[in-house]
């Protein structure tokens, strides 16, 4: 182990088709550390050409490799530093803690809704990976005691900008869609704008903080079945 704590990660490379490699790791932290290392090696030109680098819950998927087998051999020798909190500032997302499931989440956490606001907005999140829809980031950072199940019955329509919890993740719906996450709030931040560079506000590896705003919505969202947009959360 080197001075900065770099070490080989326990990883299992699985070939995918002719030009892909799925690298399986034991822990979400290891996935994020390997992903950061892959981005570093892409930036400094020491990673073989690759078309996609897709981190997920327990894996990083590389596609478009000329020689996946060569990379498997190389991977075993990599010294990978632990994930640092990073030198770039965190993306701050304004949030109104006005979600229809706030009370349910408070009950699951065994705290008051005010405590949910305090605990959630006091957490530094990380975009572990994206998926489900363009710009939808799976944010990790909540301790295990605060992980919650999905709703028993998914909503047929979750309004754009809804902030929800499911399992270890917090997510922000980049567009209106069906969904089963426990909705604790909403944001006006433009998560996804393909005409912007970068299009996704929350790319994998990005640090995120939620900054509470008064629970008042100037422009009512579209009427959404199963979602009570008039639900007001007490000011802090």
């Amino acid at each position: 182990m080197s001075a900065d704590g770099a070490r080989p990660l326990p990883l299992r490379p699985l070939p995918v088709g002719a030009h892909g490699l799925l690298i399986e790791l034991d822990r979400a932290e290891d996935v994020e550390a390997l992903h950061a290392e892959l981005l570093r090696r892409t930036a400094d030109g020491t990673l073989p050409a690759v078309r996609e680098i897709v981190p997920a819950a327990r894996t990083v998927f590389l596609d478009g490799l000329a020689d996946p087998r060569g990379l498997i051999a190389e991977l075993a020798t990599w010294q990978i530093p632990p994930l640092t909190t990073g030198d770039r500032p965190a993306v701050e997302l304004p949030i109104r803690y006005d979600g229809p499931d706030l009370a349910d989440v408070a009950a699951l956490w065994d705290v008051t809704p005010e405590d949910v606001v305090r605990l959630h907005s006091g957490t530094e999140f990380h975009v572990a990976f994206c998926g489900f829809a363009p710009g939808f980031g799976y944010l990790t950072g909540l301790p295990e005691a605060l992980h919650v199940p999905r709703r028993d019955t998914p909503r047929t329509k979750v309004p754009v900008g809804s902030v929800g919890l499911a399992g270890p993740y917090t997510g922000v719906y980049p567009r209106s869609s069906p969904g089963g996450w426990q909705l604790i709030g909403s944001t006006d931040a433009a998560l996804w704008d393909p005409r912007r560079e970068p299009a996704a506000l929350l790319a994998p590896g990005t640090r995120v903080r939620f900054v509470p705003q008064p629970a008042h919505r100037q422009v009512p969202g579209p009427a959404a079945s199963g979602s009570d947009r008039t639900h007001r959360e007490p000011a802090r």
Binding site: E52, V54, P55, G64, F129, C130, G135, A199, A203
Partner: peptide
Amino acid sequence: RPGHAHLGV
């Protein structure tokens, strides 16, 4: 549009 899978595209 290859190259954007990590953003869910």
